[in-house]
Design a protein around this nucleic acid. Structure first.
Lengths: 330, 330
DNA sequence: ATGAAAGCGCTAACAT
DNA sequence: ATGTTAGCGCTTTCAT
């Protein structure tokens, strides 16, 4: 069953059927109805491959995630899908597992027109490469744009987030404030580190590099282990900022294990507001990113590029929210 | 840059280039090398759409998940991808959000040959429909096959899992054992309920329907709320089996809030061994499914169907593992 | 071993 | 308003 069969059944040409399918207004009302009826009756769906070959477009976009096993991305993808669906686009989600080879393989889908655009949430490639890709193909980065690359992106103000959280700690009287972070997702990490240091400096607290941990890979285990190191310091922290809820949970897990009262003896704040934070005991304070909105916005940025590859790059910053729960006491 | 350009550069016909690309042995060694060199030099990738149109195959498969926001599926998808990649297939992951309309829309990708097969992890459709789809297209179900549908599937022995866990509770002296489950993922729920009842019966413990909760949607909140109901019973349970880690966490959260010592006063066991179970306090005992293997096996089943749609349906059962942690004391 | 050519299903330029 | 037709890039049959 193809467009030719439908044309035969209708007694019209394939061109007319194609016009009906593509909502071309230059078709007589009567003809249109006849064709639509036959399409309906035969449950006909136009062959996407034929159309794609002809138009060299796919009506698909690629979403590249570092991993599927981070709940953080699920709401983002839902946001993207909601928008893409409205525009008649399908979303293909892949994970790169932080492997450059895999990332390159998936990017070939752009070159070979298997997808019309790509939203990336963490790239291993250089800023030069990303800038070039972005010049040639609809390509947008979310959450972790490549530092200094010329590309449209949507993020939250990571600097301000850490600045605010750190300030809040200082205002509740903390003087020894640690920051559990990583050295991988450069963009957010650098911004957050800046915010952390600015808050300290502004309050006249001497930055202590022992309290800035950049060696984690964002696993529970890392949170525990690095928290242990921190607590063994001569002058351990009384408050811990973290770059992810998993790190916060790891840290809290360790603190509980040594009898420290979290939210009382030591305050801890996570990042991302994953669903578990509300149900952990103690419940975990955290910094929430507008995940669905991040998805929606990244699609909007991509669509601009799909419609006009020369559209200027935009850098969009969405608001975050600090959520106070038991792990920061009071 | 297409196959014609390559042919031109090589001074051969497009047919020969196509043969080289497709590893047809009937090409002279010398010709092959020349062509390969030119392909390499020009960084040429054959247009997938052209090939798909011609062969009416896509070398893509569809993985349908109820949701992205359940970590449970991430390792499964990794297993599928690992296998599919070896066979030269791409994996497209979509979520149906438990919407029948969406599921049908995605199934159209089979009919329209956008994908060569589908692995489904929960369907809203009737067993008749699933059986028919499975007869016509490569289609496999994992974890939650449609009850009584004629389709290849891979699962764990859910009955035995609950039977064993319940038995273990009985052997540690529990007599009031609740089961927090749902009424949605029929397949696993029914099997588990059977195992639960069998264990009770076999041990001469009267089944009490107050202790079988089937109203959850597997959310933290449901676990908390239903646990509260249970504990308010005249004769509350001393042990709680659950159908997911989220339910276990919700329940434990509530128990802690009312001062009950989990793993001592009341034992709780989860299901799926999600990563948080190890880092919750108390750490949570759970029933682990071999997630990666579930993915691998579901691919293998699908591939049999892709190669031969008439291949007989297989029902594969993989082993589970009960992991004891602090939430079940001792 | 290689080439010529048909045709997969569709769209769009051109003709009527 | 509708039809005719070329051609997107590829594979594959049939010749040679």
């Amino acid at each position: 069953m193809n467009i030719k069969d439908i044309a035969g059944l209708c007694g019209v040409s394939v061109a007319t059927v194609s016009r009906v399918i593509n909502r071309d207004p230059k078709v007589a009302e009567k003809t249109r109805n006849k064709v639509l009826k036959v399409i309906e009756d035969n449950n006909f769906i136009p062959n996407v491959t034929g159309r794609n070959l002809r138009t060299s477009r796919s009506n698909k976009i690629l979403v590249m995630l570092p991993t599927f096993s981070n709940q953080f991305y699920s709401a983002i993808v839902e946001g993207i899908e909601a928008q893409a669906d409205k525009a008649g686009y399908q979303v293909v989600v892949v994970m790169t597992m932080l492997e450059e080879m895999l990332e390159r393989k998936y990017l070939d889908m752009l070159r070979t027109k298997q997808v019309d655009g790509c939203i990336n949430f963490f790239s291993m490639l250089s800023k030069e490469e990303i800038s070039e890709i972005s010049r040639e193909y609809p390509y947008v980065q979310g959450c972790e744009p490549t530092v200094n690359a010329q590309v449209s992106s949507v993020v939250i103000d990571n600097r301000l987030a850490l600045y605010s959280a750190c300030k809040a700690f200082i205002e509740s009287g903390h003087k020894r404030i640690a920051f559990l972070s990583g050295d991988y997702y450069k963009y957010s990490e650098q911004s957050r580190e800046r915010g952390y240091k600015e808050a300290l400096e502004e309050s006249g607290i001497q930055f202590d590099e022992q309290l800035l941990v950049k060696s984690t890979m964002y696993k529970f285990k890392d949170g525990s282990k690095e928290c242990e190191e921190l607590m063994k310091l001569e002058n351990p922290p009384t408050a811990i900022l973290t770059a992810s809820d998993s790190l916060a949970i790891g840290a809290i897990n360790y603190l509980i294990s040594i009898g420290v009262k979290v939210g009382k003896d030591v305050d801890v704040i996570g990042f991302d507001n994953s669903s578990i934070t509300k149900y952990y005991v103690p419940s975990i304070s955290t910094i929430a990113q507008p995940r669905f909105e991040l998805g929606v916005t990244s699609w909007d940025l991509l669509y601009e590029k799909i419609e006009n590859i020369k559209a200027p790059n935009k850098k969009i910053i969405l608001p975050f929210e600090i959520i106070h729960r038991d792990s920061t006491g009071n």
